[in-house]
Amino acid sequence: MKSLVKNKLLIAFLPFVIAGCAVPGSHLTVDDDATSNQNIEQKVNILPITPQTISQYKPADLYSTANPALELDIQKYEYRVGVGDVLNITIWDHPELTIPAGSYRSSAESGNWVHSDGTIFYPYIGVVKVAGKSVREIRADIAKRLSQFIEAPQVDVNLASFRSQKVYVTGEVTNSGVLPVTNIPMTLLDAVNQSGGITDDAAWHEISLTRNGMTENISLYGLMQKGDLTQNRLMQQGDILHIPRNDDQKVFVLGEVNEPKMLKIDRVGMSLTEALAGVGGINEYQADATGVFVIRSQYDSNEGTIADVYQLDVTEATALALGTEFDLQPYDIVYVTAAPLSRWNRVMLQLMPTITGFNQLAQGIERTNNIYSDN
């Protein structure tokens, strides 16, 4: 009788033990009850991925686009002489004013160096201000001043060496370094090609162009792969073009998938379906097919939100076609949540040692009672 009572007490006590146990492992749900308890709806934006909403999440498509403004800038381009440049000045029919007789030096060596004050010295006319002027303006100035000494002077001015203006190409190119700005206009695409092109580790979706303290993000992918010439720029003195590594081009696939791991986004990007395929797909026995989530950090202190959570229901495998249209971004977290039965199995797996212990305790009590009753 005592054994029966104690066993009943143990059985009655078991639900309280189960109720007090937390479900092991992680889980994600957007059910109303769960979100209201944890105030998730106030901190994240739940966005379903459906045929009606998928177009809202896609970035703007890049197309082959002309850039008439750039073409006009190239047509009007004119190099301006700066400090350190070397000018080659020729006065026709007056060799004494050009390279001295008997000299075998190059034009760069024997030319007129632009001094730190932006001037050069020339015979007869003395100091000439050349910095900031084009060769046409310098030619006209010298010809006008020489006309006082030479009848109708025929003057030719060109650059023997371009040394005053530079652009800098850094990061994931074959030959990073300094490129001179010359009388031939150089675009951003020219700068990349002159540096040997990008490497395999280049993150060409987000290169940066820094000019006068302002940084602009440019898609080299759009420019080179899609022919979007609006991404091209005319390079100017002091520009810094940086092509970063793709080290931060990664996403994390976790939860009920066959091989949770980090994946690196390749040059052409990665879709949600590609990410799932890259980890062997979802675990068909434990995953909740309605709960494929993409968690994207979107901290906004004004609105109190911490993330956007996109939800894809792949109960029907055809929904994976929607996943091919959803592009992942760096540091996205793809999380496949567990099915309710899987969560219950976790609880039971955690409780089994305790239940076994209760059974052994009950059996021990029963044997003890039998011994006393026999005596």
Rank of each mutant, 00 (worst) to 15 (best):
D300P: 02
V268P: 00
Q298S: 15
A338E: 13
M235V: 04
G269Y: 08
E259V: 08
Q286M: 12
V314A: 10
G323N: 05
F326T: 00
L276R: 03
N232Q: 03
K264L: 08
V294Q: 09
T337Y: 02
Q249F: 08
K250Q: 14
D248E: 14
N302L: 15
I265D: 05
M262H: 05
D308W: 05
T315G: 05
T315I: 09
E316R: 12
N302P: 02
A289R: 15
Q298Y: 00
V257M: 04
A319Q: 11
V314P: 04
I265S: 01
L312D: 06
I240L: 12
I243C: 08
E284G: 11
L320C: 09
L254S: 13
G280R: 14
G238C: 10
D332W: 02
A317Q: 13
F326H: 00
D327C: 00
I282E: 06
V309C: 01
T290R: 15
T305W: 02
I265L: 11
N258Q: 15
K264M: 11
G278K: 11
D313S: 12
T290P: 06
Q329R: 13
D327G: 02
L263A: 06
S342Q: 09
Q236E: 02
L322P: 10
D332I: 01
A289C: 07
P330S: 07
N246E: 10
L341E: 05
V294G: 07
T315K: 10
G291I: 05
P330W: 03
I333P: 02
L320W: 01
Q236F: 04
A321I: 14
D247C: 00
V268I: 06
E325G: 08
I240K: 13
R233E: 11
R233G: 07
V292E: 00
N302C: 09
Y335G: 08
D266C: 07
N283F: 00
Y285R: 15
M235F: 04
V314G: 10
S301I: 12
Q329T: 10
G255S: 09
Q298N: 15
G280N: 14
A321T: 12
L276T: 06
E259P: 00
Y310I: 07
A319W: 07
Q237E: 13
Q329D: 09
D266I: 09
V251M: 06
K261Y: 08
Q286N: 13
P340Q: 06
F252Q: 12
L263P: 08
V336A: 02
L341I: 12
V309G: 03
F293A: 03
A277V: 14
V253M: 11
F252N: 14
N246V: 00
I243T: 11
R233A: 10
D247L: 01
E274F: 07
V336R: 03
Q249P: 02
T324Q: 15
D308N: 15
P260M: 13
Q237F: 13
M270A: 03
E284V: 13
V334I: 14
R267N: 04
A317L: 12
A321N: 14
L322G: 06
I282H: 11
G238A: 14
K264E: 12
E256K: 06
G238H: 12
A317M: 12
G280Y: 15
G255Q: 09
I282P: 04
G280W: 15
L276N: 04
L272K: 13
R245P: 00
V309W: 02
G323A: 08
L241K: 07
P244H: 11
